[in-house]
Nucleic acid binder design. Structure first.
Lengths: 252, 252
DNA sequence: CTACATCGGCGTACGTTGTACTAGTAGTAC
DNA sequence: GTACTACTAGTACAACGTACGCCGATGTAG
């Protein structure tokens, strides 16, 4: 992802060079503002150009393609996702927890960024580098061999991405339009009546399945609690491995 | 997601009704074949219609929109992701592990399915229901209260999605075209020279950063091992919670 | 068998998208 | 001033999703 770089190189301008009217950062910021305000689908080349008061094709002197622009936007998100450097705890669990929470918050604020991760390389831009550096700093105190450190970092990143994608962004039953609910309820009843879903049937009971579902979902822990709990479990597991690993290397 | 249903209701055809030439399942299968062979971007309404030997607009008698077709494709994936019913272990850890591994394999085979999760509701189609039922069966033996069961299930789903998205699908350094490598290496060197990346510098050393990076990535555990390890950690954490929970309820 | 009613099939067309091509313009160095 | 070149941008095109509306096949009624 060469294009993840902040600016095209022009430290020594060629003779007769003309100063660009925009920076890549400006363009990314404009695209980001549109995405935040109207959704990622509203980000078209024409739209971004208009927002910048430029001709559409002018953008193509700053980005190679639309996915290039997208990579720029991703990197801007990676900046937002950085933890203020001084606030990073020396304790690796606290530090990783802080990083994870901040990352989740950023991705929830910009849902398209999560979905785009697999499309473009995520580790390319300079701010992604910084994020990685922060993660390295966080796990520095674990005493783990380097491969295990990287593994731990990746695991946290994976967990955050998965949680946001599946738990935070996946539309819940509340997103179902009211007029569609009866049809879905009938469909659910029909499926359950087949007898192929014993556990689901037990879960939802015999009465108003719709109300039962809402009740169960409403009574459980909040997403925040669930996120924290899952993270704690991962860190617990890692801590176990770490103490085992340290005990082993001390024994040697 | 009303449209997740397998067929439009026409048990009692209207007088003079004509029998449809296709089923929604056939259309989904055709779209899926294209997606697998040429990528999700190759799935256009025209392309799918051509594959079915139909006019483009004919599809719109079976699906309301393209995203509707997409939902159908998603549900087809959910079918592939089901564990053969009899092979589900009674041990909750084994059962969840089997489900997770199968899910990962399916998503890796069909990368677009992961990315689409947040776009359309994931829990809508009939096969998604079955997947949920299987998960419920898997955690039946935990003795957990229902809310915690659901939490555990969601946690596994989240982990799988995150791992596939970030670790399996994210293009690694090997995806970088050879001609771009020197430029990126130079950029990396430049960034490191700023001194803002002490841990990263330590990690990559002073010599050929590119080779160092490749060496580290190559020496670590394989993705399969990493997936299994993370899963084990999650389950370890959950097992700890379970034994605590059981001890507490026994004490009462 | 004929006539009718109905709905599946699909050709045409429109607005929108990303972006290739190309010509023009304006800022900088001499 | 002159020349160079990078920046700017208009036009154009292929491909997309899909609204609209006609046609004809097909099952039912008589």
């Amino acid at each position: 992802m060469l294009s993840g770089m902040p600016e095209p190189v022009w430290a020594r301008p060629d003779p007769g060079a003309r100063r660009p009217r925009y920076t890549r950062a400006q363009i990314a910021a404009a695209a980001l503002a549109i995405a935040d305000a109207e959704g990622i689908d509203a980000v078209t080349m024409r739209r971004v150009a208009t927002a910048l008061d430029a001709g559409t094709m002018t953008l193509y002197h700053y980005v190679r393609s639309k996915s290039d622009l997208f990579a720029l936007m991703q990197d801007a998100i990676m900046e937002e996702l950085l933890v203020p450097p001084d606030s990073l705890s020396a304790d690796w669990r606290e530090a990783l927890t802080a990083i994870a929470h901040r990352a989740r918050a950023s991705f929830v604020r910009h849902p398209w960024a999560v979905r785009g991760i697999a499309t473009d390389g995520g580790a390319a831009g300079p701010h992604a580098l910084r994020h990685f550096e922060q993660s390295l700093a966080a796990v520095a105190g674990t005493g783990l061999p380097i491969a295990d450190k990287l593994d731990l970092i990746a695991m946290i990143d994976d967990y955050v991405a998965g949680f946001v994608l599946k738990s935070d962004l996946e539309p819940g039953p509340e997103a179902i339009p009211a007029e569609a609910a009866p049809a879905i309820a009938a469909y659910l009843d029909e499926q359950l009546r087949t007898g192929d879903y014993p556990h689901l049937t037990e879960l939802l009971g015999d009465g108003d399945r719709w109300a039962a579902l809402a009740g169960i979902l409403g009574s459980g822990p909040t997403p925040d609690e669930r996120f924290a709990r899952g993270l704690r479990r991962l860190l617990d597991g890692a801590a176990g491995d770490i103490s085992r690993s340290n005990a082993q290397s001390a024994r040697r």
